[in-house]
Amino acid sequence: MIVRAIDAISEATGKLSAWCLFAIGFFITFEIVMRYVFNAPTVWVDEISRVLQVWVVYLGVAYVLKHREMVTIEIILSNPDTIWRKLAESFAILVLFIFAGTACYFGFQIWLKATLAGHTTDTYLAPPKMITHAPVWVGSVLLMLQGGVQLYRVWTEGLPEDDILEGQH
């Protein structure tokens, strides 16, 4: 049940990331029309688009891991049924935990400090920095949760059929 819940969260955040990319494209198109057709540029498109791009990256990373679309090198360990492949997959996930755990810990500290102090960005819109700092630790938590699910799968279900077929080509 927990595995399915984490998978569902990763799916939802991945789809949210995709919709945010769509919104960014729409906002930039809107800005181009406003700037070059009506000669009335906006003050918010650039900043909102940048904030959304940061959220896209961190919200989408668990989705990417769930669908096994991270960069992998399988030249030496191409057979997915060996213990060595399972150990290599496990090692990669453990390295991911170290990276994501560090990013989560320090990202949360920076977010908490900015939130409690009421810091804002040094831009025209001046949104709270909590909005720009939160994706780091939120995305890292999501990545660690999905990493735990993937580690569980390596040892209980093995590698997905897609990986096995790709290894034969």
Rank of each mutant, 00 (worst) to 15 (best):
Y58S: 01
F38I: 03
R85S: 03
W111Y: 15
P135M: 06
M130W: 12
I83N: 10
G167S: 13
Q168M: 11
M70S: 06
E166M: 05
R153M: 09
F26K: 03
E11N: 10
A117W: 04
E89Y: 01
V45D: 06
W111P: 03
H133W: 11
F26C: 11
S10E: 02
A126Y: 04
F108T: 06
R68I: 03
N39R: 11
E69D: 08
R50T: 14
S10K: 00
D46S: 12
L159I: 00
T121M: 15
L116F: 13
V64L: 13
W111G: 02
Y124H: 09
W137C: 05
V138Y: 03
G158S: 09
L145Q: 02
I9P: 00
K15H: 13
M1A: 14
T72C: 00
Q53G: 15
G14E: 01
Q109N: 13
I164S: 03
D122M: 10
K86W: 04
G25I: 10
G158Y: 02
D81W: 04
S140Y: 01
K129R: 14
H67K: 11
G14Q: 04
H169E: 14
L165S: 09
G14M: 02
M1H: 12
K15T: 10
M130V: 01
W44F: 14
G60P: 01
E11F: 08
D162W: 02
L59P: 01
P160Q: 07
N39K: 11
A40T: 13
Y36Q: 08
G60N: 03
T72S: 05
A88D: 15
V141E: 04
G148D: 07
F38E: 06
G118M: 09
L125E: 14
Y124A: 13
A40E: 12
L116Y: 09
E161L: 11
I32R: 04
V141P: 00
V51W: 06
I48Q: 05
E31C: 07
L125M: 15
G60E: 00
M1P: 12
D46W: 08
G139V: 04
E47N: 06
T156F: 10
Y105M: 13
M144A: 12
G107W: 05
G25R: 09
L65H: 00
V57E: 00
W155Y: 11
I110Q: 10
V141T: 10
G101Q: 09
D162Y: 05
H169S: 10
T102F: 15
G14H: 03
V43C: 00
V136L: 14
V138S: 03
P160V: 00
S90W: 11
I6W: 02
I24R: 06
E11I: 07
T123P: 05
A117Q: 13
L16R: 01
L125V: 06
A100D: 02
P127K: 08
D162R: 11
I28A: 10
A23T: 10
P128H: 12
I32E: 06
K66A: 04
Q150V: 09
P41N: 07
A23R: 03
G118A: 10
A12H: 06
A117M: 12
W84K: 09
M130G: 15
G101S: 12
K113G: 02
T115N: 13
K129F: 02
F99E: 07
G167P: 02
W84M: 13
E69R: 12
L143H: 00
L21R: 04
P80N: 01
P80S: 04
A5S: 11
T120L: 09
A117G: 05
I83T: 12
L94G: 07
E74T: 05
L65F: 01
